[in-house]
Design a protein around this nucleic acid. Structure first.
Lengths: 215, 215
DNA sequence: TTAAAATTTGGAGTCATTGCAAAATTGGGG
DNA sequence: CCCCAATTTTGCAATGACTCCAAATTTTAA
């Protein structure tokens, strides 16, 4: 069986993990993060508390699991930039595209306000979210350094990553606030597109021309 | 006694608080954040565990207490900007001044690397630090909105605050890293002054001219 | 000196998280 | 169909942060 497609067992694990996460998320959305104990989640998911911890390192991961993919999203955008396009241009283009498409990936969906509300009300979840932002920044800096072939001491990747992370965080932050304030996805989308224009206008030429793909 | 200068009692409380914080910080620096229990701190400080919690909401606060004053520092700089000076200009000037002076307020001091090392190695402390950054941003946004007399829906205070927070965070981050890497305060100061020049160069005119003090 | 106000403390309890070893489950031969 | 070995699940005990509460203890002002 070695080297095989690793079928049943793996599939089952993935399902169990997903099941626990789903049950937990449902409870959190219903009653808030702190009001639900891990023991309750385990019982509701029909597994032992230890099994929950087999799959998730901490209670917060049960909720923020669905945010995976956000961390390296900007890096993927940068790596996928078109010929003649800079890192910043690619990020702005992709971000605009997601917002224009009213994509759930940027929080433009019904129910997102409930999701954010749970985070807002739980300090430990909020802290985790900040940690994610930091992870995005660090991931992007690494990618930029590699893509631009910059030396280790060169500060430009740090600065450009900072500017792009600012763009991303601000957009995600405004979307979150507007959705919590009761905005409809389509409305918020329109509003944020204007915001992106304004932000693009604040980006330096040096940033906009960094790491242009040659070829 | 009401309305009085509130002397002895207040002083004693401040002293107790400071004493607990000092003892805790000493232990953390020696053995790391997670390796020290609150019970140990209480014993070393010669108080009960409950007294520790009377003064500090959480274990992390025992260490990060000394960071108070950082949160509204940029707001103070902005409010103190000179006639004809914009918010951004004031922040850059003050920041440059702190770095030039090799000020401990920005981490340019012997021992800062040990302080940062403890934070780096404790996820919960790191999370708290990110929370502080967020607090800086929010505080600054509020101040900018007030100082510029901007309307509630106006996004400019958000954007300018984001740019200035980027400046501040990047500088503090680089200082932290360089100090942990063994840099001497004076060395790091010189290096960071160059960085500030580069960052200033990336700021948009719109940002540099926002909230100019008239008079 | 004394009574009210504030502070400190002890103790019990909740909950997240970890470590460990026993028990149950699974997949693949035989 | 049965058994072995690997993997997963589970029960149990323990640690440590944090909260609640009511009983001491200390401090202050009259």
């Amino acid at each position: 069986m070695r080297g095989m497609a690793e079928g049943l067992r793996e599939r089952k694990k993935r399902q169990t993990r997903q099941h626990i996460s789903d049950v937990a998320t449902g409870l959190f959305l219903e009653r808030g993060f702190d009001a639900v104990t891990v023991a309750e989640i385990a019982e509701a998911a029909d597994v032992s508390v230890n099994t929950v911890y087999n799959y998730f390192a901490a209670k917060e991961d049960l909720y923020l699991d669905r945010m995976d993919g956000v961390v390296d999203r900007m890096s993927r955008w940068v790596r996928g930039r078109r010929a003649g396009e800079s890192a910043a241009e690619a990020v702005v283009r992709e971000l605009r595209s997601e917002v224009e498409a009213v994509s759930p990936r940027v929080g433009l969906m019904d129910g997102y306000e409930k999701f954010m509300k749970v985070i807002r009300e739980a300090p430990t979840l909020r802290a985790r979210l900040f940690g994610l932002q930091q992870a995005v920044l660090e991931d992007l800096e690494t990618t930029l350094r590699a893509e631009a072939g910059a030396a280790d001491g060169d500060p430009m990747p740090t600065l450009v990553a900072g500017q792009l992370a600012w763009l991303h965080q601000t957009v995600m932050g405004v979307i979150g606030r507007r959705m919590v304030d009761g905005g409809k996805p389509a409305e918020v989308s329109r509003e944020v597109l204007v915001l992106i224009d304004e932000m693009e206008d604040l980006l330096s030429e040096k940033v906009l021309n960094y790491a242009v793909r040659t070829g």
